[in-house]
Amino acid sequence: MAWFESLGMALIDVLIAGLMLIVGLFPEALSAPFDYAFMQRALLTSILVGAICGLLSCFVVLKRWSLLGDAISHAVLPGVAIAYLLGWPFFIGAFLAGAVSALGIGALERHTRIKSDAAMGLMFTFAFALGVVIIGKIATNTHLMHILFGNVLGVQYPALMLTLFSGVVALVAVWVFYRSLVLYTFDPMQAQALGFNTSVVHYGLILLLTLTIVASLETVGIILVVAMLITPGATAHLLTDRLTTMMLLSVGTGILSAVLGLYLSFLFDVASGGAIVLVATALFAVALLAAPRHGLVGRWWRRRRGAAAMVP
């Protein structure tokens, strides 16, 4: 495993060096914060998290899975706590907990008369409560705060490597299984009728979602990752009627929010996770107003012009 780790670290160093070249193009006032090594790591992490979340948020928004994303992200908490107790790497516990709760939600939905929103609410509050109780017993409040709200300025190499790894897995999976994922999201009945194994696609997409949440844990935390899984996709959905364009725009807004949020949090000394989500929401607000076809201003303008054209 040692070669794998050193390869990962070398790759990260190369990526950071490349980023610094780009940052160097900006005026001194903008690039100054990135002289610190911790800011360089934070920048790379933010870009990766913004990109992965942006990609997956297209599926979350189109599949109406916002609440499921919320549920999985909360359910990750006891996994982190139990992994800490057992001395495992935290992401293994987080991943298992997310997957188990998603399966539990699916089982409740399918085999009882409980409806899906109640099943999700029930599972994620249970898991979250369990996590809060365990963490209260074993660790300090700072730990809990970092898991809940992220600590991107304190990101070290192992977490950065995990994020990079998750990003590569998510990208490759979406690329290779594009057809299954898109058809399942668009029209599950048709996917079934064409002979796709929809339960495999369903749980595959849930695992990707869990992976994304785990990868974002240290950056924005499990509460605010939900915003990064909804807002970029929602923004992009307002801007285009093409799925591939939507994915690119969503990844773009994800990265832009993460980078701008990080910079502003440094500048004004505010919580970085919160700043990232606020920027993402501001971008959404701009799209909501100014999107060409689906924006409020455009619609108002067309309605006014349409009304004017009616008048003889």
């Binding site: 189109l62 999201t185 668009f186 029209d187 009945m189 048709q190 009728a193 959905h237 285009t240 009627d241 093409r242 799925l243 364009t245 939507m246």
Partner: peptide, 16 residues
């Protein structure tokens, strides 16, 4: 081949 009822399809989906 199966042709679904209209309500079964997500018409807001960004697809041509």
């Amino acid at each position: 081949a199966y042709m679904a009822q209209q309500e079964a399809v997500e018409w807001d989906f960004p697809i041509s």
